[in-house]
Computed example of a mutant assay.
Amino acid sequence: MTGFQMKAAVEWLLSAAPDAATCRRRWERDPHGMVLLPAGGLWDVLVLPGELGYPTLDVLSRCADRPGPVLSESGGVRLGFFVPPGTASRWLGTGVRAVGRGAWIVVPHPGRPAGVTNWLVRPDGSGTLNDPGLLELAMHEAVAGEG
């Protein structure tokens, strides 16, 4: 990721924060800086268990030019796929947690390893998100590939 892309990714993430200056300071002062950002404004997040999330990301990476942002949390136990806002209120799926308006997510700085929560696919700053339809197809393909 270039310096310009990193700056764009930081600015994009901070644009979701109720207090961007405080978030920026936390990221700058703490090498493992994590901030809480609200879901439902710029994005929702679909959280998949790792055993489904990793194969889904593999399929998605083959199908999309570039997947949207994806977080790995708790050492890969869960993966969070950033999707368009409103997706969470319409999502039906067993074992998938939909995080939308009224919820908050832990977000690490896009340029540093953060420990428990890390980016598998960093935001590029352009606002690119994972397409929910393509993500659903990738999940089906991932499950079909297990057998």
Rank of each mutant, 00 (worst) to 15 (best):
E146S: 05
V143C: 03
C63A: 11
R122P: 02
P132F: 07
P69S: 08
F82G: 00
S89L: 09
P132Q: 02
V99M: 08
A138C: 14
V83Q: 08
L37K: 12
A98R: 02
F81M: 08
L71C: 05
P113C: 00
V106W: 09
P132A: 02
L42I: 00
S72W: 09
G95T: 03
G147V: 07
W119N: 03
E136S: 10
W43H: 14
L52M: 13
T87D: 02
W27T: 06
R122D: 06
L92A: 11
S126P: 04
C63E: 15
E146L: 04
H32F: 12
A144M: 10
D65R: 13
E11Y: 04
G53H: 08
P49Q: 06
R122Y: 03
A39G: 05
P110S: 01
R97F: 05
L46Y: 06
A9N: 01
A103N: 14
Q5P: 05
V47E: 15
G95F: 00
V121Q: 12
A20W: 03
N130D: 07
A21E: 15
M1F: 06
L42D: 05
P85Q: 13
G76D: 05
K7C: 07
N118H: 03
C23E: 07
P108L: 02
M6R: 12
A8Q: 15
G125Y: 04
D131I: 01
A16F: 01
L52V: 11
W104D: 04
